[in-house]
Amino acid sequence: MNKEKYLSDIHDIKEIMDRSSRFISLSGLSGVSAGIIALFGAYFAYLFIYQESEYFDYKMVGIDETSMFNLFILAGVVLLLSLGSGIFFTSLKAGKNKQKIWDRNSKRLLSNLMIPLATGGVLCLIFLSRGYVGILAPLTLIFYGLALVNASKYTLNEIRSLGILEIVLGLMAMYFIGYGLLFWAIGFGVLHIIYGIIMHMRYGS
């Protein structure tokens, strides 16, 4: 009996099912780069937020209009850099996997990611306009986590547990409200780097 033929059949079936229904070219390196960029971003945000309050014994969160403007620019730069590096590494990997970066699977992945993410983004802007600065870090973590869990059905399985961890971090950040930036740095920086390395080792880049 040629067992080998059937083993290779099973392998093909699994491979085609994955390739036709999931976006599997997500690169681990894009996670690592996004994590490093987020850590730099968090460091600069720390400087912006806390610089004027060093005279006090304790650190007070002081956000006036200039530092608010700086933070907006910073957030934009961090977002653009991580998206850019993510797209770069992922398109490299898609080329190797012979998968197009902009196909049915990546569109489905992106639309499922964007629904919770955009909801969270708009909600954050509303809170920001009302002056609730402290809950922004927890909210971005929570909605990012929900977006990942939602999108994980259409890409590599690891994304689901990453999403759950982001949600847990977000809830903790909501409870320990003064440490938002620290949790944010762990969630967007450290976790991305760890998951990026794991995925790089499991699937290559």
Partner: peptide
């Protein structure tokens, strides 16, 4: 092989067009 591939792909997708 090709028929096996077609079936595998269609099992996990509601529908696929010819070019996909």
């Amino acid at each position: 092989k090709l028929r096996l591939g077609i079936m595998s792909a269609l099992m996990v997708n509601d529908h696929l067009d010819f070019n996909s």
